[in-house]
Nucleic acid binder design. Structure first.
Lengths: 338, 338
DNA sequence: GCCTGGCACTCTGCGCTGGTGAGTGCCAAC
DNA sequence: GTTGGCACTCACCAGCGCAGAGTGCCAGGC
């Protein structure tokens, strides 16, 4: 168990290192934080912290830098979330309020998050899985060709072509449209399969093939869209990463291009509350020297997607967490309004 | 006017420099290319080329590197477009054939282009301006709220909310839908404004306000979407850029985040044929040490959007141009089929 | 038992130096 | 117009020494 003062020393080390990006020594620590003890004492504490694995020396006779374990302790126990100031909150709200559609909301969110945190921002599009159907529209484009358009409560629109096994009249189409909407409008996506199960039975034999084709395309859309999309921004901030450039930045850029990796990264985060994954806690190897701060957001009380930032393990955790939390909150509001 | 041999020397310098990334000297040149003359002669030619501004020395007593002007001459006169090999063509086609929708086509194109050229790829979504309307759909979501969905021949879908000044019945909505589609379906976007001009007159006074609102939203959508979207990929290739990393890469990453800059960049390219902008020929300052190779692509004979790559001025122009041209051609085919 | 000042020790980082090699420009000769 | 020769100029690298920051340890004090 670490004494109170040793925790203070760790906190001071993290803060200084984040600020200066240089290993911090015992003398500098006592000068900048009034710990009430001498450098020699701090040195003893540092030795203890090093034994426990919270800090490390890059080389003998250099200052100390926090390890992943050290940051973990800092985030969990030693630092809170730094709330945004009122002007910042207003700026966030103003910026997001100007959005015209879902794409725009996501794009603005990414920009905002990247600017606020000065790191790389990642925003997942609201998932279809947890949202509800607002409307299903069917359009006849040719005698045996129907376009299916799906509109969600988050304003997302998906369309698919359906090739019909037999010609399908306008009357049947209108009938199907009406029946389909009365069953699924306002319902959750996960409920849709059972809700439409027996729908073909209400139609003439000749139309059943087409009805089934439409329904299976609809269900397919739901499943496929679980491969969710996301948007990233602020990659220019990677240049502030470190001095040993190409080696650090390359795998990060590669990871950012792999949507699968990123989705997994965000997905791993717990459903509620903010998640911070530090350095080697990230499963993906290329992100071993980065931390990911992520949180869910949604139009109601419920999270429909996640957003977050990727930055060096040496980041301002309280500030970043505050920004991420605030942005998620306001995006949720915007989505609920529209 | 430069003699034939001097042009050969310039070509050799460009080829060697692109390959080795190091300034090339007179001796190395004669060894690797059989020019049939001695190093001393080549030195004289180099001095002449330097006087004309086609090559430069990083420092006294170093080899020569091509200037932007030198690359320009190389691209215009000394090198052709290197065609893709048959296996490469097959690979391109196979890769693009798997796409399920427009987003997927664009996403695959970006990946492909980035991989082929090992540079940063930029692909513009097919523009609405030149495409035609496939269908306009109107959905009543609430008594005084209508959703407008616009479907284009390139498979793109845009939706907008319309707040109606007065409640609007299902009958009127169906009427408007029918009239609207009969007028604009299959027509070019640029023609739409005049085609719908007198539409409100066909409706009762009480509905005219809503009809006008719908129409103006439709026209707005056309205009707004001229701010076209684009997708980029292969940013990890920036790490192969140069040795003086942060300084070179930062402005490029920043430029890539500015969609406006990129759209302008692609837009500046001529409508037909391939465009190569080298170094300082790019208006945007951050891209002064990069070259942009771009070309239009489209579903018919006509270009509906552009795609291209951004790379260091020291790039393999013939190869890059070949890849860009081939990809544009196949994407056009895919779009025409769907 | 914990804190403190002192001291010797260990590295990194920096600037200086000299040597090497690649490449050039010029010139005189062919 | 081409060629070989020659002196000259730098960039690059390795080796050296020095200064500075930081540490670990120890003996003494509260």
């Amino acid at each position: 168990m670490l004494s109170e003062r040793r925790l203070q020393v760790l906190r001071a080390i993290v803060q200084d290192y984040v600020g200066t990006e240089e290993p911090v020594g015992s003398k500098a620590l006592t000068e900048r934080h009034n710990l009430g003890v001498s450098p020699a004492t701090v040195r003893n504490d540092m030795a203890a912290l090093e034994d426990e694995g919270f800090i490390a020396q890059p080389h003998t006779s250099a200052g100390r830098i926090p390890t992943d374990k050290g940051y973990r302790l800092f985030v969990d126990k030693l630092a809170g979330v730094k709330p945004m100031t009122p002007p910042e909150r207003r700026a966030i709200q103003n910026f997001l309020d100007g959005a015209v559609d879902l794409d725009d909301v996501v794009a603005r969110t990414v920009r905002l998050l990247a600017q606020l945190t000065r790191q790389v921002a990642v925003v997942q599009y609201p998932s279809l899985t947890r949202s509800t159907v607002r409307h299903v529209e069917l359009l006849s484009l040719a005698p045996a060709r129907v376009m299916l358009v799906l509109i969600t409560d988050t304003g997302r629109v998906e369309q698919r072509m359906v090739d019909c096994p037999a010609p399908f009249g306008e009357g049947s189409l209108a009938d199907l449209r009406a029946r389909l909407n009365s069953r699924v409008a306002g319902r959750r996506f996960t409920d849709v399969p059972t809700l439409v199960e027996d729908l073909p039975e209400a139609f003439d034999m000749e139309d059943r093939g087409t009805v089934s084709a439409v329904l299976s395309t609809l269900l397919e859309t739901l499943v496929e869209e679980n491969e969710e999309r996301l948007m990233i921004g602020g990659t220019a901030n990677l240049t502030r990463f470190g001095h040993d450039f190409p080696l650090t930045i390359r795998p990060v850029l590669e990871a950012l291009e792999e949507q699968v990796v990123l989705l997994k990264l965000l997905g791993e985060a717990g459903d509620s509350g903010m998640t911070v994954r530090i350095g080697h806690e990230n499963a993906y190897e290329g992100l071993n020297s980065t931390s990911v701060v992520s949180v869910g957001y949604g139009s109601g009380g419920e999270a429909v997607a996640k957003l977050g930032v990727v930055g060096p393990t040496r980041m301002d955790y309280p500030g970043t967490m505050g920004a991420v939390r605030a942005v998620a909150r306001y995006v949720g509001q915007i989505l609920a309004e529209s």
